[in-house]
Simulated assay, not measured.
Amino acid sequence: MRNLDITTLRSFVAVADSGGVTRAAGFLHLTQSAVSMQLKRLEELLGLALLDRSGRTIALTASGEQLLVYARRMVALNDEVIGRLTDQAYEGEIVLGVPHDIVYPAIPQVLKQFHAAFPRVKVQLVSSYTRALKEKFGRGECDLILTTETSVDPGAQTLCHKPLRWIGAPGGAAWRQKPLKLAFGRLCTFRPRVIEALDAANIAWDVIVETESDRTIEATVSADLAVHTMIEGTEPPHLERIEHAGALPDLAMQMINLYGAQTKKGVVHDTLADFLRRSFSSMETARLRAG
Score class of each variant (00 low, 15 high):
Thr211Cys: 06
Ala247Phe: 05
Ser151Asn: 15
Ala174His: 10
His269Ser: 05
Ser63Trp: 10
Asp214Ala: 15
Leu288Ala: 10
His100Arg: 09
Val152Gly: 03
Met283Glu: 11
His161Phe: 11
Leu272Met: 07
Lys265Asn: 11
Gln262Met: 12
Gln88Arg: 08
Thr271Glu: 08
Lys122Trp: 05
Glu141Val: 02
Val121Pro: 14
Ile58Ala: 07
Pro236His: 09
Glu284Tyr: 15
Ile203Gln: 04
Leu164Gly: 06
Leu67Ala: 02
Asp87Val: 13
Arg186Cys: 01
Ala173Gly: 10
Arg287Glu: 09
Pro99Phe: 14
Lys178Val: 12
Ala116Phe: 13
Ser222Asn: 10
Ala197Asp: 02
Phe137Glu: 11
Ile107Cys: 10
Arg278Thr: 12
Leu85His: 15
Ile242Leu: 03
Glu218Phe: 07
Pro105Gly: 04
Glu149Ser: 03
Arg186Trp: 08
Leu146Lys: 02
Asp143Asn: 03
Lys122Ser: 08
Gln32Ile: 05
Ser279Met: 13
Pro119Glu: 02
Lys112Asp: 15
Thr229Leu: 06
Val75Thr: 02
Leu39Gly: 06
Thr158Met: 07
Arg120Glu: 06
Thr61Asp: 04
Gly171Met: 01
Glu44Ser: 11
Glu218Thr: 09
Arg289His: 12
Glu149Pro: 01
Gly168Tyr: 11
Phe275Met: 11
